[in-house]
Amino acid sequence: MVLEELGPDKTVCLPRHCECEIEAPLCAGWLNPLKMKAISDLAGPQVLDKAFRYKLIGSHSGVKLCRWTKSMLRGRGGCYKHTFYGIESHRCMETTPSLACTNKCVFCWRHHTNPVGTEWRWKMDPAETILQESVEKHQNMIHGFRGVPGVLPERYEEGMAVKHCALSLVGEPIMYPEINTFLRLLHTRRISSFLVTNAQFPEEIRTLVPVTQLYVSVDASTKDSLKKIDRPLFKDFWPRFLGSLKALGEKSPCMSNNCSRSSIGLFTFAASNGSRTQSKSSVETGGK
């Protein structure tokens, strides 16, 4: 773990250097809050912007054009959300109101360029601003496909009107203190919501307003394997994990508009957790 001194009161572990254990209290992924108020000022999110073509929004949010959005604009196939839930990828906006996360998963496709931490310590932008800028920047990226060979004109026109929002871009969206306001704003605009959470916030799951599709990631079936694969920062990560599955199971069944469709995402990795199918089956019953 590489530490950089910022002053007598604070030490920071930058995410691109951090190889910390659960017990390392300094691996919080943020700079001194008295000196740094925006996640977007950190080096990691700037890499997201330049290398992964993210569009940063305000202090702590981002939006990106998904590869499946580009695929459907050309009349090709969509992602699994289209197969399972009928979500049209060319009309789907992938965004996050929190670039920060509580885990440092070994499989993270963002290469740990986003900050990590166990609580919110950022200057907070209002939900209205985040949603408005997300839609505007998403539309600007769609606009770049106008007249591109292979892009279907009718798909382009449809793509300019956001109908779905996937809160699964990077980080942990449920950490954002105004997540419920953000979800209500989406639904007011008749935009469906697809929220992915990492099973570390049971109380937040319980108090979450109805989501069109609530999706909890289950990356391991035992305490040791979860620590190895997800590398969570919470010391009580296992009770939080089990509590999240229980909270998911307590959500209202979809028999009215005031409900959330919910599912558990089981992820299998070669030579990591693929041999624990039976254990995963047992864990899964916690969220039934």
Score class of each variant (00 low, 15 high):
I179A: 02
S59E: 07
K123F: 08
V148Q: 12
T212D: 15
G144S: 13
G117K: 03
K227E: 15
T197K: 00
A220W: 03
Y54E: 02
M160S: 03
L26I: 13
N273C: 02
R91A: 07
M255Q: 08
H111D: 13
C108L: 02
H82F: 11
W120Q: 00
F241L: 01
W30D: 08
A270F: 13
G29R: 01
Y215C: 10
W122E: 05
G265M: 12
W30M: 09
H164K: 00
S282M: 14
T222H: 04
P232E: 08
C66I: 03
S260M: 01
S134K: 02
K251A: 00
G117Y: 05
D230H: 06
M255A: 08
L26V: 12
S71G: 06
L14E: 09
E250H: 05
H82V: 03
M255G: 10
L248V: 02
A270S: 15
H164S: 10
R184K: 12
N140L: 13
P33G: 06
G286N: 13
I174R: 00
V216P: 02
M255W: 08
E128A: 14
G58H: 04
S262Q: 05
M255R: 08
L26A: 11
F182S: 04
H187E: 10
P97V: 09
S193A: 12
S168Q: 10
C101W: 04
C101L: 04
M255D: 10
P153L: 02
T118A: 12
T222M: 04
G287W: 01
H111Q: 13
N273K: 02
M1Y: 04
V196C: 03
F201M: 07
S193W: 02
I179D: 03
L167S: 00
L6Y: 14
E154S: 11
R231S: 11
I179R: 00
H187W: 09
H111A: 11
